[in-house]
Structures are given as C-alpha cells and as structure tokens.
C-alpha cells in the first residue's frame, strides 16, 4: 500500500510546480507510472482523493499513463511489451530477456488556471 505515498508525493510535486508557474488552481495532474511500480489504480484514486483535500489540487483530475516493461525475444529478436507479467514473446512464445523500462514514476505536467495578476 505505497499508493498513499505516491498520491501525496504527486500532490506535493504538483503544488511546487503550480507555485513556480503562478498557477493558483490545478485542474489536471498528469503522470506516468510503470507497471513495475505495482501501483493499483483503484487504491491510487482512493489515496489521491484524501491527499488532495484542502490543497490547490482539490478539484484536479488525475490522469495516469501506464508504461510497460519491454523485453527482447531471445529467439526472434522482437522487442515486446510485457502485459500481465507474461514474459513470453507474443510471436514465438519464447521467454524474453534484457528488460528495460516499466519502472517510470514521473509527474509529466499539470493544467491549471493562472493567478489573476498574470
């Protein structure tokens, strides 16, 4: 249950960016989370609802882009995404190797309304 830590860190980071960018109300928070982080979307939404209370993110929608680990097929060389933890090549069924990606945990942007003086 690290989803609460993720949600709180997302809200904190979004508030920092909003301050730097003179945004007073955040309407959308965009992030990229790799499967390897094993962040459950339902738990994240629950945690985010709590973490954003009383903050400039209070009304902000949370958009999550999921990324997958990539493997290289040992037999046919195909680079494929691992879905549902299945490490077998979708073409030839052999196990893949040389893992890359899938561990992203990044805030990629915010949308919001600028403060009045801007």
């Amino acid at each position: 249950m690290h989803e609460f830590a993720v949600a709180r860190a997302l809200v904190d980071a979004a508030i920092d960016i909003a301050r730097e960018s003179h945004i007073h109300r955040i309407t959308r928070l965009r992030c990229r989370i790799g499967d390897m982080r094993q962040v459950d979307r339902w738990l994240l939404d629950e945690a985010y609802a709590l973490a954003r209370e009383g903050t400039p993110c209070e009304k902000a929608e949370l958009c999550v882009e999921r990324t997958h680990m990539q493997l290289e097929c040992k037999a046919c060389g195909r680079l494929f995404s691992v879905i549902d933890w299945d490490w077998r090549c979708p073409d030839c069924g052999r196990s893949g190797s040389n893992a890359r990606g899938g561990d992203e945990l990044e805030l990629t942007g915010i949308d919001g309304e600028p403060t009045d003086e801007d």
Binding site: A9, D12, A13, I23, L105, E106, G109, I110, D111
Partner: peptide, 14 residues
C-alpha cells in the same frame, strides 16, 4: 494553461 514537466514523483524522498 498547460505546464509540461518531467519530475520524479519521489523527488523529496530522494
């Protein structure tokens, strides 16, 4: 207003 960034979510922990 749309702001693009690339920020490690656990930056403060790190």
């Amino acid at each position: 207003m749309k702001i693009e960034v690339l920020r490690n979510v656990f930056e403060k922990n790190d």
